[in-house]
């Protein structure tokens, strides 16, 4: 009925259309298809990733533990000296904390909220350098849900964007698709931390008049409804103040070394901010 050429052209047009529809799913991640597809992929691939990661991790540990003992003795001496110094610092901090507690009770301040957390191993990484994500070995069965923040003691890591029974996909803060509402700890100047898919992030929308200097620490503001307030994000590493424009061009180096992440902490009960209340 139709010639071969017509069929080929019709087929190509169909593929272009289907391709466009699939691409548009990127902007419809709230659809029911995307989470289900991610869940299926993690269900099948996650266990293999975990197996390989554990094997390579074990081999790496054997190497570092048994073959680098030569430098350990020297390192031990340095660490002992540092420990003594740290013990003194901890003592001073403890004193400060006790003073803080007394002051808090004086003002009937409620203090920090204790977060329910779960520790997860990193079992997979994004295959492309252009996008930054991780696969961790905790999922729905452990209470992990889409949108929960992920961190390490050094600072925030990212947020959960896909979850299966035993695995979850985490979008890192250095990914271009991620944004974190943040503020400068010293001056409380607000802005948005946006990833650049490299080892640095941009601090956007910080007003030209805001007092920000190199070395300032940037923390989460808590207003994005994902990350609790006060978590460390990074340090201001470069500022370019242009004569035109109302915002500063600021670069941040995150505290977290994303290339060396092995374990992360997922916050299971992050504070929920109802924007409508404001």
């Amino acid at each position: 009925m139709f010639s071969r050429k017509t069929m080929v052209i019709a087929g190509l047009v169909l593929i272009v259309v289907v391709n466009g529809i699939v691409f548009s799913y990127n902007y419809m991640r709230k659809s029911s298809f995307y989470p289900a597809a991610v869940e299926t992929a993690l269900f099948f691939i996650g266990p293999f990733q975990e197996g390989v990661s554990r094997s390579t991790g074990f081999a790496e540990k054997v190497w570092t533990r048994y073959f680098s003992l030569v430098s350990t003795a020297k390192e031990n001496e340095v660490l002992r000296r540092k420990l003594a110094e740290t013990e003194y610092t901890v003592h001073m901090y403890r004193e400060e904390m006790m003073l803080n507690a007394r002051m808090a009770s004086f003002f009937e301040f409620s203090g920090d909220v204790a977060y329910e957390t779960v520790v997860a191993d990193v079992v997979g990484r994004d295959p492309s350098a252009w996008f930054q994500s991780l696969v961790i070995n905790k999922g729905k069965a452990h209470g992990v849900r889409i949108g929960q923040p992920v961190m390490v003691p050094e600072g925030i890591v990212g947020q959960v964007i896909g979850v299966s029974g035993r695995y979850a996909k985490v979008l890192l803060i250095i990914d271009r698709n991620n944004a974190v509402d943040a503020l400068v700890q010293r001056t409380r100047a607000r802005g948005i931390v946006r990833g650049l898919s490299s080892n640095v992030c941009h601090f956007e929308f910080a007003l030209h008049k805001a007092d920000i200097t190199t070395g300032d620490i940037v923390i989460t503001s808590g207003f994005d409804g994902v990350y609790p307030k006060g978590l460390r994000v990074g340090r201001v590493s470069q500022i370019i103040r242009r004569s035109a424009g109302i915002f500063q061009d600021i670069e941040i180096t995150p505290f977290v070394d994303f290339s060396r992440l092995e374990e992360v902490i997922v916050i299971l009960n992050p504070p929920v901010i109802d924007i409508m209340d404001d």
């Binding site: 991640r29 597809a37 691939i45 994004d126 295959p127 994500s133 964007i161 896909g162 996909k169 890192l172």
Partner: peptide, 12 residues
């Protein structure tokens, strides 16, 4: 599809 779902790249 597996690569799209396992990575942080835009779907598709």
């Amino acid at each position: 599809l597996a690569m799209d779902m396992i990575s942080g790249a835009p779907a598709g």
